[in-house]
Amino acid sequence: MNLRELSAHLGLSQTTVSRALNGYTDVAPATRRKVVEAAERVGYRPNSGARRLATGRSQALGIAFPVDRNLLLDPHFIEFLAGVAATAGEKGYDLTVSPTTGTEDEVYRRFARTRTADAVILSGPAVEDRRIALLNGLGLPFVVHGRTQTPLPYAHVDIDNRGAFRQACRLLLDLGHRRIALINGDEGQTFARDRRSGWQEALAQAGLADDPGCPSCCGAMTEENGYRFARTLLERTPAPTGLLCSSVLLAFGAYRAIRDLGLTVGRDVSVIAHDDDLPFLRPHTLDPPLTVTRSPIRKGGEQVADFAIRLATGTPIDQLTDVKPVDLVYRGSVAAPASG
């Protein structure tokens, strides 16, 4: 069946059937259900080109892929993308990943010009992210995984990074630690800035805001950086007795550095990391098991895709913002300091 024949079969206008199949909210739920069930029963599949011309919608979500950043080697991005793809597929949407070798501007302009994406997904927002103003100017709906500083309203899904690291640092303080170092991600990105803020707030409340025994390092969240940063921090005098790491990958490196220096995790140095629940990194299998703040990044991707589809089909931006609390999972990598 084509659209005209399906419409005649249901006794509805072609406009109503088209809008029902494309998820428009102005179609009554009972009508939409009737149309979708009939389309499935007769095996109707809309022509994508005709649908785009008729509705102005592509039934696709867009993501810019900066080739020079090697995101396919970043397990956090891959797991996030898997969540986006899972929800998009469940809801009948395609996912368009468009490569760029320079800035992402041209990709977004192309999405807006060709209407090949109903909404765009932004990941890894900077503290001040110029993409927000660009997409607003293009009139292209978008959802941000994370938050950024801007007076413009925007849909977003985030976790409470500040609260997570404030809570983690307070745990170490409550156990008696007074020299707590931070091994952070790229502090040009909002998540890392917020984690630093949480760490600093907890230290300030304990009177340690400017204590030289509480240093920090930041950079790409890799195991090698975790090793290098931890070794640098632990070779200081006096050395920190607690480490807060922005990812399990950094903590893997920190564990190696601690052992190479003849120290013991959980006895000489307590370690806490943020766990994005990556499938090949299991912090509970480390020796000793790693204490974490935990929030699955795949679920974040699923919710971002859901928000993007809802935004593209008319849901107001102010109904599409969510900042989730983060769990703290206590394990054997944390204990009271062995000495002062």
Rank of each mutant, 00 (worst) to 15 (best):
P66V: 10
P66C: 10
P66L: 12
P66I: 07
P66K: 07
V67H: 12
V67Y: 11
V67W: 14
V67G: 10
D68M: 07
D68Y: 11
D68I: 06
D68V: 09
R69P: 01
N70P: 07
N70E: 15
L71R: 04
L72S: 11
L73R: 11
P75Q: 03
P75K: 06
P75G: 05
H76R: 12
H76E: 13
F77P: 05
F77A: 07
I78S: 13
I78A: 15
I78C: 11
I78P: 01
E79F: 00
E79G: 00
F80T: 04
L81A: 14
L81F: 11
A82E: 11
A82P: 03
A82V: 10
A82C: 10
G83K: 05
G83Y: 03
G83P: 05
G83A: 07
V84P: 02
V84E: 02
T87F: 01
T87E: 09
T87N: 00
A88G: 05
A88D: 01
A88T: 00
G89I: 01
E90D: 12
K91N: 11
G92K: 04
G92W: 03
G92E: 02
D94T: 11
D94H: 10
L95T: 06
T96A: 15
T96E: 13
S98I: 07
S98Y: 08
S98R: 11
P99Q: 08
P99M: 12
P99T: 10
P99W: 09
T100E: 09
T100A: 11
T100Y: 08
T101H: 12
T101S: 14
T101V: 14
G102D: 15
T103R: 13
T103K: 13
E104Y: 04
E104C: 06
D105R: 10
D105L: 07
E106N: 06
E106Y: 03
V107Y: 03
V107P: 01
Y108W: 04
Y108R: 04
Y108T: 01
R109P: 03
R109H: 07
R110I: 02
R110D: 11
R110W: 03
F111G: 00
F111E: 02
A112H: 03
A112S: 10
A112I: 08
A112W: 01
A112M: 03
R113Y: 06
T114E: 12
T114K: 01
